[in-house]
Amino acid sequence: MNIELKKKSVLNWWKILAILLLFYTVIGGLLMEVPRRDILNESIRNLYFHVPMWFGMIIMLTISAVASIGYLSNSKSRFDIIASEMVNMGAIFGILGLITGMLWAEYTWGKFWSGDPKQKASVAGLLIYFGYMVLRASFSDDQLRARVSAVFSILAYPTFIVLIFVLPRLVDSLHPGNGGNPGFNAYDLDARMRMVFYPAVIAFSLLGVWIATLRIRIRTIDNLVIDKNYEKENSVILDHKVK
């Protein structure tokens, strides 16, 4: 028991990796050389902080969808907790991505909201997952809630992917690298930016998973305590009956 405790009190390797990569993202993202582009100017650095939000969201939602399939195949409440908490974290990333994108859009496109296909689609995707949260809140029976929301989540995931990846590509978008935006296209391929961008995606995704696992663990403890209290109450009742 003691050995186990000692092992657990040290941070996992992936948490340390997350911390290191976050520092690298902040320092490298603000100080390293970036391509010089008109209109974008220094706001090109938003790639390191805004885009990882969306990548993080997609990763959280993917984990959630897999956990939902897991729940349907073996009905373990653990999978249900993972699925719902990953959606919560993904939604936070999505909201942050939307706000940071709007702030950036005000200074590069001239408007906070210009009805860009990607803006609309990401809001629609977020709404689907808000629907998931409302759906979860509307059940009082734990098992029914878990089963119905798992089915909803599995259906919501492909819809979300289509909204995020497919639809915006079918139409012209103001987003860099989409449609007719030759001035922005070049930085997608810039090696200097990739050196910070990919670590940034990993850093923020790991941070999201970290926070989500904390909530998952709290809810697991919560369930355990409730179960134990239930057992205790029942045993008290049984004792009374015996007496």
Binding site: L5, K8, S9, K15, W210, I211, L214, I221, L224, V225
Partner: peptide, 17 residues
């Protein structure tokens, strides 16, 4: 975040014991 993580570690071991 790390302090929250530690606290949950403690709670987990308490509940399991």
């Amino acid at each position: 975040l790390i302090s929250i993580d530690r606290k949950i570690n403690k709670l987990e071991s308490e509940v399991k014991n």
